[in-house]
């Protein structure tokens, strides 16, 4: 099988040169450049149609790696090759122009996912229906509750799927009814033959039920890669031990 994503020795560094106040220009204080390497040399390939789980503690570089794959920023070192596949990142709480209504944001988000205006137009009604927003779709996104916000974001990604989907801990958005519906929809999408998926989740249940393989990131390094159950057994044991130590 062809690989859909090739990741070679990827390093991503955050330089916390927080935007500085002007005063510092005159006082001439050296700007502190704290470097923080979030991902330290990740290397793996994802085959076309494969579903990969990404696990690890908070701050282990999972989301950073996903964002790099989505192209939000490029790695400081190493290579990410998507072989021309279209990609979308599904994450909580990001992605809209807040002063614009939901309807326009559907189009804008779709365009950025590489869809054409016609394609979006065709599926527009479906997106609105799935999001359950009703008339709110014509109100500015800034008036939305956080639940509505996630529902819209989720609906767009689900109805306009890309070749590669990156899912960052969003399998639990909205109320129970919506959650059930979205989980079912997502499962259908993910299981489609050609869809390549990377899922970040802290929910072992989700990972075990969906993923073909699992990658465990620890402090930015790849601690373990392998069959889902194999990795998850070790990972869960590790986490249990950690919880015991902290208790």
């Amino acid at each position: 099988m062809d690989s859909a994503i090739d990741i070679k020795n990827v390093h991503i560094t955050y330089q916390t040169i927080n935007s500085i106040p002007f005063k510092q220009f005159f006082t001439g204080k050296k700007v502190k450049r704290d470097r923080f390497e979030a991902v330290k040399g990740a290397t793996f390939s994802v085959k076309k149609g494969e579903i990969i789980g990404l696990v690890g503690r908070n701050g282990s570089g999972k989301s950073t790696l996903l964002r790099a794959v989505a192209g939000v920023f490029s790695p400081d070192q190493g290579e990410i090759d998507l072989h021309g596949n279209s990609v979308s990142l599904l994450a909580i709480g990001i992605g809209f122009q807040r002063e614009l209504p939901g309807s326009d944001n559907i189009y804008l988000a779709g365009l950025l996912m590489g869809k054409s205006l016609e394609e979006i137009q065709e599926r527009y009604d479906e997106i609105v229906a799935f999001s359950e927003l009703g008339d709110f779709i014509h109100k500015p996104v800034s008036t939305y509750s956080s639940g509505m916000y996630s529902k819209l974001s989720f609906s767009i990604s689900c109805i306009l799927p890309t070749d590669v989907m990156l899912i960052d801990e969003v399998l639990s958005v909205g109320d129970v009814a919506f959650r059930k519906k979205s989980a079912a929809k997502l499962r259908d999408l993910i299981r489609e033959e050609d869809r390549t998926v990377i899922i970040v989740s802290h929910n072992s249940e989700t990972i075990r039920s969906l993923c073909d393989r699992v990658i465990w990131l620890h402090h930015g390094e790849m601690k373990m890669v392998g069959e889902t159950n194999e990795v998850m057994d070790v990972y869960e044991a590790f986490m249990a031990e950690l919880a015991q130590k902290n208790a």
Binding site: A70, V72, G95, F96, Q97
Partner: peptide, 11 residues
């Protein structure tokens, strides 16, 4: 101000 969009996709 465009952080919302910029942190999700490349533009």
């Amino acid at each position: 101000l465009s952080k919302g969009v910029l942190s999700k996709v490349y533009v």
